[in-house]
């Protein structure tokens, strides 16, 4: 188990641009423009699985953009919440990427995506049982030991809850953090989506989380599916950040203070400037938070 203090003892400090300014998802359609204009943004986040090739444009452009910006790496394929042993070949490839890019943060999900030899390409829900918690913690330990760093785990967006769950999602996350020393990547859109879908308060949900473990925040967009009843919010990552997610974000920062933030977008990609504007919107809220905390401290 690696703790934040272990990380600090190893001499890794959080770079200032990542800490100060919000970031956006890095997508191939933005590569050339980023290198030509070097836009004012805190960092870029990549999905690990898109950057594991030995060659090709993704590897090339990531290396060039890394020369100018901090990078965070977000894994979507380790299936940490799964029943099966981790795919060590895949973990090794991810570790090589992390060693090559030296990201500020490596994060993964509280979800599973592989079963036996098949990869389902979605972040699937797990029942919150002691047995599954032990498996998840073993997997997180295995990744932290291989990467030799603390990782962050993202809270899921879900559409189902299981009768077989023996504890709440927030208790499960709290125990996960306590047992592994991992950090929390708090996806505020996921909180909004899951709480809407399960009829509970996102504010109470936030209060039940181990918020002190939060080291990065994700903000994204959802779509509301009202074709059937009950209506469900779908974590689509293809829309601007919604009004109620911004509100929840402000509330969260009031609780925990300033925190590095990503505008996460995977589909229906807008002009780069649109994502940058959302990042600057987050920066304004963060600046207000810093000033408020500073004022209350004085």
């Amino acid at each position: 188990m690696l703790t934040k203090s272990d990380q600090q003892a190893e001499g890794r400090s959080i770079p200032s641009r990542f800490a100060q300014y919000s970031g956006i998802s890095l997508k191939p359609c933005y590569y050339e423009q980023i290198l030509a204009e070097l836009p004012d943004v805190g960092f870029f986040e990549v999905h690990a699985e898109n950057y594991l090739s030995l060659g090709g444009p993704a590897r090339h452009y990531l290396a060039r953009i890394r020369e100018h910006y901090d990078i965070t790496v977000h894994g979507v394929g380790l299936s940490l919440g799964g029943e099966d042993p981790l795919n060590t070949e895949h973990l090794e490839r991810v570790a090589q990427l992390v060693e090559r890019i030296e990201p500020v943060i490596f994060s993964e999900h509280l979800a599973w995506s592989s079963h036996q030899q098949h990869f389902l390409n979605d972040l699937l829900p797990a029942p919150y049982t002691q047995e599954r918690l032990t498996l998840l913690c073993d997997h997180i330990d295995q990744v932290q030991n291989r990467l030799k760093r603390q990782i962050l785990i993202e809270n899921p967006s879900t559409y189902v809850e299981f009768n077989s769950s023996a504890m709440t999602e927030t208790d499960f996350i709290g125990q996960m953090v306590a047992r592994t020393g991992c950090g929390l990547l708090l996806d505020v859109n996921n909180v909004e989506v899951s709480c809407f879908n399960h009829g509970c308060s996102p504010y109470q949900y936030l209060q039940s989380l181990p918020l002190q473990a939060t080291q990065q925040i994700h903000l994204a967009g959802y779509v509301l599916d009202e074709q059937d009843q009950p209506a469900l919010k779908i974590d689509s990552h293809d829309q601007p950040v919604a009004h109620e997610v911004w509100q929840l974000y402000r509330y969260l920062l009031e609780q925990i203070g300033d925190c590095p933030t990503l505008i996460e977008r995977d589909g229906n990609l807008p002009e780069l400037t649109t994502l940058l504007q959302e990042a600057h919107q987050a920066d304004d809220i963060r600046q207000n938070t810093r000033e408020a905390h500073h004022a209350s401290a004085v």
Partner: peptide, 9 residues
């Protein structure tokens, strides 16, 4: 034929 790898390429 579902994918056998998380690397979709």
């Amino acid at each position: 034929c579902p994918p056998n790898s998380p690397i979709l390429s």
